[in-house]
Design a protein around this nucleic acid. Structure first.
Lengths: 234, 234
DNA sequence: CCGATACTTCGCTCTGCAACGAAGTATCGC
DNA sequence: GCGATACTTCGTTGCAGAGCGAAGTATCGG
C-alpha cells in the first residue's frame, strides 16, 4: 500500500530540523551538510543522518565535489509539494500572529527565490505587471501567457515557449504560487523560471550570502523598469 | 517562525494512522470518527485524538449531526497539498514494486473520485478525450479549455466558465493532477469539478459503499459515449 | 426515564527516533 | 608524507507521542 510511502514523506517533512533544511534548500541552491547543520542548529552527525534519510527517500539529491557533498531538492515536483505545504502552513497562521521579525526578514520579503522563480514583492510585482499589461491571464489554478506576452518577453531574450517547442500550437501555461509574505500569487512554472534564469544570467540580481534573499543590482533596477515598468520596490 | 507550522503539518501527515484517515477523506466525503477508526485500524479513542489534532491544525473540519461527527478535508488547498504529496510518494516507488492488490484495487483503478474530480481510467479517459477533440490543451503545469470546449461542455449542461463569471474575458484554466494508478495526468480544477458535479447530479456514477471507487451506471455509460466519445472502459 | 450508541478525556505504557560524543573514512592544501 | 577539514558510522541516552483500557459526556430511540 502506498499509504506508508505517503506517511514516510510526511514524517520526513515533519521533523523540525529536517523541515528547516528543506526550507533552506527551497531557493534551489545546493548546500553542504555543514551549512545545513548550521541552519538547523544541530551537529553535523545529526544533519548527516537527516540528509541520508531525505536522500534515500528521494526528496533530495546529492553530488560529491571533493570533500564537499552538495545537497539540493531532487526535482521541481518535490519543490511544488513543499510549496503547497508552505501555502497551507501560512494559511493556518492567524494574521494577527504573523510577525515581521527584522531586517533579515525584510530582505526576504522584498525579493527572494522560491525554488526556480522569484517571490516576495519582486515576484508579485513582476506578476502584477504581466497581468496589467495583458501579457498574462491568471486564475486560482493556473495562468496563460498571451501571444503579446510571449512576444514582449522574447524581445528581452526571455523565452517562455516551453523550451523544446514540443507542440508549437500550444499556448504556454504557467502556475500560480502563493507568496507567503505577500499573501498573493506570483508566477511560477515556465514563465517564472524563464524570468529568474534571465535575471541571474544577466547579473540583474545577486544572492545575499547565507540567505534566500536577493539584492537587485543597479542594472537590475533598470531592467525591471524596462521590461516590466516596475519602479523602486517599496 | 513558520518552519514550526510546516513541520507540524508534516508531522500530522506523517503518522500512518492519520495518513490513512486523510487518504480515506481524499474523495471529498465526510466520514464519522468511527468509520475513520476502522479505516486506520485503531480504536475510537485513538482516532478521536488524531482527528482532534487534524482539526485543530485546520487540515480537517468537523460538523456535528446528532451524535455523529462528520469529518472532511477542510479545503481544496489542503486536498491539493495532499495530492502533491501522493504524487511524490508514487513517483518514489520503483515501478517493479507497484502491485495491483486485488478486485477492490481494480475498482479503484477503473474509476474513483480524487477530492472534487474523477481519477483512474475514467478520469484519464475523459481528459484524453477532451484533449484529442481540442477542447482542452494540457501541459505539465496547467491546462486551458478552448472556446470550442466551453461550448461543447455547456451543451451538456456542464458549466466551466468559472461559476460567477468574475472576469469574463479570461479563458478558464484548469489544473493537471497526476493519476497515481495511471501515471498520467487527469484534469482537476474547475473543469474536473464541473464534470464530477454533473455526473453526480445526474446519477451517472454511484459510490461503492465504503470505498473511494465509483460505479458507472447504465445512463453514465451512455453519457460518457455522448459527451466524450468514450466506449467501454477496460 | 431507560439502555444503547457515538464520541471524548484521562492516565498509563512502551516504542521509535532525534541528538550527541567518540571514533572512523575521505579529501583537501602544502 | 602530514595535519586539517568535511563528512559518516556507531553506540548510548532521553523524550515525545501513539496506543489502549477505563471512565466520562452527549444524543439516540423508545
Amino acid at each position: 500500500m502506498n499509504v506508508n510511502q505517503i506517511a514516510k514523506i510526511g514524517m520526513l517533512i515533519g521533523e523540525p530540523a529536517r523541515t528547516t533544511m528543506l526550507m533552506a534548500l527551497m531557493d534551489g541552491q545546493a548546500l553542504t551538510a555543514t551549512e545545513l547543520a548550521r541552519c538547523a542548529n544541530v551537529t553535523p552527525q545529526t544533519a548527516s543522518a537527516h540528509l541520508a534519510q531525505l536522500t534515500e527517500a528521494g526528496l533530495l539529491c546529492m553530488h560529491k565535489q571533493g570533500r564537499h557533498r552538495y545537497h539540493r531538492i531532487a526535482s521541481s515536483e518535490i519543490a511544488k509539494m513543499l510549496e503547497s505545504v508552505m501555502e497551507v502552513a501560512v494559511g493556518q497562521i492567524p494574521q494577527s500572529a504573523r510577525v515581521v521579525t527584522g531586517p533579515k526578514d525584510e530582505a526576504l520579503r522584498k525579493a527572494r527565490t522560491c525554488y526556480d522563480h522569484f517571490a516576495g514583492r519582486l515576484g508579485v510585482a513582476i506578476t502584477d505587471s504581466l497581468i496589467s499589461s495583458q501579457y498574462l491571464e491568471f486564475d486560482d489554478e493556473a495562468g496563460i501567457i498571451t501571444k503579446k506576452g510571449i512576444k514582449h518577453l522574447a524581445a528581452f531574450d526571455i523565452d517562455v515557449s516551453g523550451g523544446h517547442g514540443k507542440r508549437k500550437s500550444r499556448r504556454p501555461v504557467c502556475r500560480p504560487c502563493m507568496d507567503w509574505s505577500e499573501r498573493r500569487p506570483h508566477v511560477a512554472g515556465i514563465v517564472g523560471a524563464a524570468v529568474r534564469d534571465h535575471f541571474f544570467r544577466q547579473n540583474l540580481v545577486k544572492r545575499i550570502q547565507g540567505s534566500r534573499a536577493l539584492v537587485i543590482t543597479r542594472s537590475g533596477e533598470m531592467a525591471l523598469k524596462k521590461i516590466f515598468g516596475i519602479g523602486q520596490l517599496r
